[in-house]
Design a protein around this nucleic acid. Structure first.
Lengths: 365, 365
DNA sequence: TGTTGTTCTGTGTGCGTACACACAAAAATA
DNA sequence: TATTTTTGTGTGTACGCACACAGAACAACA
């Protein structure tokens, strides 16, 4: 039951550890027969490399650049960062180091400006939230030219380069379907349902439109109610939002459900509470504090959690798998769409802080 | 930015690595002044032990005994085992080994029979699903006498010994509240709601009663509908279940919601489909295959996921933290109560298989 | 037969830590 | 003072692996 070491394989195959090492790492310079013998011994003894020893022996530290929007205060990106930090803590003893590089995603061209820094900073890989599609595409093209692996998180620009290590994020279309289901169950009878994009710009092919499509498709199969789509561009003034809502309620007296495709549903909850219209069912996104507060006073509210923390975590872990375990994953990983309501929100908040695995906070003792 | 090693501390403190080691591990035999200097250097240089090197150098492997019910075929316990295996894979290179020991939880006294094997098998810790409360309590008392740390998963018998490393599992009461909320939203008008315990025995203080209490308490605050509690003892014969349901529907024509406190809600879904009564909303537990199938044909069905896989995972990780990182957690950890419906079930199935962290499946190459 | 080149293989060292051991210095005893 | 005991400190080795380097074996040439 003792673990088999390289030494054991060498013994079994009648060669030295050096030869075994060459076979394991495909370094060449091994006679065919020797290689065969070693491979057979590896198979037979079920050899699995000791990760602790490997990362200790390997001197090369893989340096990864993590590119994120510079919205320091935004809770969604804070959660992303949190997950990233967690993963880095867990892997720092195993040959992974990282730097977070931010850019202003409200201005054009800022992402591209990072180019020089990224490709001349000696980085071995890129972890990027490519929410500026055009610019990000240029960067990823560059990655492929320079043979630098990259993982996308949060936004996916469907970039199928040879160096792509896939995408970790949410399935927006499916989250729209889920919102449809929740509203369907909550409403009972067919009525009017509103979709609200609360965002300054809804660009072609964006998440928001995928969510819209998901909800619409759900209702094509189930009941086919009237669906009204509205965009609220100016989200900084509550009065503007309020008048849009009042107008909607006036135009569609049977409006009984609202789906907000961004994280700003708390505004709607507050306004509807004010208007004493809390019989309207709401579905929105993200566990930001104001939304969590809204759960407390608005019964018919569901939040869909996109798990930003795990996006960061798994994103980094993909690079870890790639470099340290020679295990390369290129597929898309969709994180679970958590349905959050007042009765289960506490556990979700908990896990975001506690997931630390293989992390040592202890200084001594 | 280079990582500080023990050597660096020794240099900074003007002592040898041996002295630093003694300070770090509280081995004594260090002069007060030397100790002070070392501690200061550790603080100053922000020393964090290298986990890879530590587990490589430390030869002692901590052996843990994992005690589970012997229901090999049960999907819930399979998931538990899966999570346990995942955690063991992730930690096997770091000085943790484990053996799963099963007992027949359908017979009395079987758990206690393990006693000798557990306490004379040279185990360093215990991970137990103490679903036979009385017998488990005796075992845990024994643990405290022998100074053997233990973690409880899935069931919690509130055992506050000095060696307890807490509990990882679900919050049954809260899951009942959550079921209440889901039914409340789904029903709209106040009607009759049924609670179904589908289990051969509902013992005092069991999870099932906690779930019942949670749902009842929820509705005391919201609408206060009529709630009917029924137990179905004989779950092996579908005809028995069916007649219970038919009787319920007859006695309570306005029954519009059913809460099944075990994983057997698929039976109910199948029967109601048969009876063409699918307007009744259902809430049940666990992602077992038959329940997942039921999601496909029964729209108004929600499953609450108790995350058995993560229970096993975090349970093992607690022991890992305790032994390898000297980081001892004694608190209760409640896992998130996932709300599952057809539209988000796929992601939940995915994550159960994919969560492998720090695991090396690669043989060579 | 000697020389050069090519292909293959074994040995040695170091990664950062844990721990055993040897030994020096100081203190307690004779 | 001599001897034992206690206390404090440094050195050396091993863990399993990666990788550099030396060198053996063999063939191909002069």
């Amino acid at each position: 039951m003792a673990k088999t070491r390289i030494k054991d394989i060498a013994l079994a195959a009648g060669v030295s550890v050096g030869t075994v090492d060459r076979v394991i790492h495909n370094r060449g310079r091994v006679a065919k027969e020797a290689e065969e013998k070693v491979k057979k011994a590896i198979e037979l003894l079920n050899y699995k490399p000791n990760l602790a020893a490997r990362s200790l022996a390997r001197q090369t530290v893989h340096k990864i650049a993590i590119v994120l929007p510079s919205q320091e205060e935004d809770e969604f990106w804070m959660a992303q960062r949190h997950g990233i930090r967690r993963a880095l803590d867990a892997t720092k003893d195993f040959g992974l180091s990282a730097e977070i590089i931010t850019f202003d995603d409200q201005k054009k061209g800022e992402l591209l400006k990072l180019s020089a820094r990224l490709f001349e900073g000696g980085y071995d890989a890129l972890l990027i939230a490519p929410n500026i599609k055009g610019e990000a595409r240029t960067l990823l093209d560059q990655c492929n030219k320079l043979n630098m692996p990259y993982v996308q998180i949060n936004s996916n620009i469907d970039h199928k380069g040879a160096n792509s290590l896939g995408f970790v994020g949410q399935d927006s279309y499916r989250s729209g379907q889920l919102a449809g289901k929740l509203l369907d169950i909550a409403l009972g009878a067919p009525v009017t349902i509103g979709i609200l994009h609360m965002e300054t710009e809804v660009e072609e092919g964006s998440h928001l439109l995928a969510k819209e499509a998901g909800l619409k498709d759900y209702f094509k199969k189930h009941g086919d109610p009237r669906i009204v789509v509205t965009q609220i561009v100016d989200i900084s003034h509550k009065s503007v939002i309020r008048s849009v809502i009042e107008e909607l309620l006036h135009d569609y007296p049977d409006l009984m459900g609202l789906f907000v495709t961004t994280s700003r549903i708390h505004h709607i909850a507050e306004i509807l509470k004010d208007l004493d219209k809390m019989e309207i069912s709401l579905v929105g996104f993200d566990l930001v504090q104001k939304n969590i507060d809204a759960l407390g006073f608005y019964k018919r509210l569901f939040l869909i959690n996109q798990n930003p923390s795990l996006q960061g975590y798994y994103g980094v872990m993909r690079l870890f798998d790639h470099f340290l375990k020679h295990k390369t994953i290129r597929s898309t990983k969709y994180l679970p769409l958590g349905i959050i309501t007042l009765e289960n929100v506490s556990n979700y908040l908990h896990i975001q802080d506690r997931d630390n695995i293989l992390q040592d906070n202890r200084t001594y003792g």
